[in-house]
C-alpha cells in the first residue's frame, strides 16, 4: 500500500506527530511507497529528521505562494500530486492547518475523511482507524474510501521509529496553484510565545493546573514541574476563564483533546467536561486535596494532598533523579 504523510512543521522544526505518522505509515505500507510531503520552507533544516523515520520519497514544495495565501495553494499542490500518483492513503496531523487542508482536499478529490484517529491498522488492504467518540467513552472503527483515503491523526497516537535511510527528494514548484486560490491573503503572522515549552496538543507529557492553584502567579508551580519533565502546560476551563492561563492551553470538551503518555492534573477536580479532553491519556496522575474529586476515578496514580507541598517537592526530587 502506498501511504503518504503531510509533514507538520514550522519552518525547519519538524513536529513529532509527523515522525509518528511516518513511522506508522512505514509499518503499514507492507513495502509500498511511503512519501513525506513537505510544503513551505525549512526543508534544509528538517530533511534529516524526516529521513530518520524512513520514508522512501520526500516531495518538497517551498514556493513562497504557499505562505502568502491561506490553505488553498497547499491544497492545489497536494491535489495535483495525488491525482498524478494516486496514493492509497494520506495521513494529516490534527491541527488547524491540517484539518483545513484535509477537508478541502477530501471535498475536491471525493475522498473519505476519517477524523481524529488514535489508532490505525491495515485490514484486507484497507486502513482502519479508531476514533474515540464522546470524549473517549466509545472507540469507533472508521475508514476512508477514495484515492487517497484521508486520515486525520491525533498527536501521540503512534510511537516514533528511526530506521533511517536516504529517501529520494523530489522538488516541485507551485505551478499547480490556481488564481482562484490567491484570495484569502495572509497579511501578518504573530507567532505565539510558548515559553519554550511544547504546545499541549503536541506534548507527550502535560502538567495541568486548575482552580486549585488559586491564582495566576501559582502557575509557576505547575511550570516548574513541567520544565523538569520537558512537558507542556495545560489548564482547566475554570483556570482559563479566570484569566490565569491562555486559552490555547485549555484541555477538555471545549478545549484541546489530548492523549499524551503522561498527564498530571494539579488542583483539577476532573469534571466530565475536563475528562472528555484527557481521559485517553496513557498514564494519568492526579494531585488534589479532596479524596472525593472525580479525577481520582481515572487516575493511575493519585496523591490526596496539598499541591503546594507535593508538586514543589516532586519537582525537586525529579530534578535530583534526572541529574543523577
Amino acid at each position: 500500500m502506498n501511504i503518504w504523510v503531510l509533514v507538520e512543521h514550522d519552518g525547519g522544526n519538524v513536529k513529532k506527530v509527523s515522525l509518528e505518522m511516518l513511522s506508522k505509515a512505514r509499518e503499514l505500507s507492507g513495502g509500498g511507497e511511503v512519501a513525506a510531503l513537505w510544503l513551505g520552507d525549512g526543508h534544509g533544516e528538517g530533511a534529516e529528521k524526516v529521513a530518520s523515520a524512513g520514508p522512501s520519497k520526500v516531495y518538497v514544495c517551498d514556493d513562497s505562494i504557499l505562505g502568502e495565501f491561506l490553505i488553498s495553494p497547499a491544497v492545489d499542490v497536494l491535489a495535483s500530486l495525488c491525482e498524478e500518483h494516486k496514493p492509497d492513503a494520506l495521513l494529516v496531523a490534527s491541527t488547524t492547518d491540517g484539518k483545513d487542508i484535509a477537508a478541502r482536499l477530501a471535498a475536491r478529490l471525493g475522498s473519505g475523511l476519517t477524523n481524529d484517529i488514535t489508532a490505525l491498522e491495515e485490514r484486507d488492504g484497507k486502513l482502519v482507524g479508531t476514533y474515540p467518540a464522546f470524549g473517549g467513552s466509545l472507540l469507533v472503527e472508521c475508514w476512508s474510501e477514495g484515492t487517497p483515503g484521508i486520515y486525520i491523526v491525533k498527536p501521540n497516537a503512534f510511537s516514533v521509529e528511526a530506521p533511517g535511510g536516504s529517501p529520494e527528494v523530489v522538488a516541485i514548484d507551485g505551478s499547480a496553484v490556481q488564481d482562484s486560490s490567491k484570495r484569502a491573503k495572509v497579511t501578518e503572522v504573530q507567532v505565539a510565545e510558548s515559553g519554550g515549552r511544547p504546545a499541549v496538543d503536541e506534548a507527550s507529557v502535560i502538567v495541568s493546573g486548575g482552580r486549585g492553584l488559586g491564582g495566576p502567579e501559582n502557575f509557576a508551580v505547575v511550570e516548574g514541574l513541567a520544565d523538569v519533565l520537558g512537558a507542556g502546560v495545560g489548564a482547566s476551563r475554570a483556570a482559563v476563564d479566570a484569566g490565569w492561563y491562555p486559552h490555547q492551553s485549555q484541555v477538555g470538551q471545549t478545549g484541546k483533546t489530548v492523549s499524551p503518555q503522561l498527564y498530571i492534573a494539579c488542583g483539577i477536580s476532573g469534571a466530565i467536561q475536563h475528562r472528555a479532553g484527557m481521559q485517553t491519556s496513557k498514564n494519568i496522575v492526579a494531585i488534589n486535596k479532596d479524596p472525593e474529586a472525580p479525577i481520582f476515578a481515572i487516575a493511575d496514580f493519585g496523591v490526596v494532598g496539598d499541591l503546594f507541598k507535593v508538586v514543589p517537592a516532586l519537582t525537586e526530587e525529579l530534578a535530583k533523579r534526572k541529574g543523577a
Binding site: A106, G110, S111, G112, L113, T114, N115, V128, A133, L138, L139, V140, E141, C142, W143, S144, E145, G146, G149
Partner: peptide, 8 residues
C-alpha cells in the same frame, strides 16, 4: 466516503 464500522 467516511465509513463507520464496529464500536465498543
Amino acid at each position: 466516503k467516511s465509513k463507520v464500522g464496529e464500536w465498543k
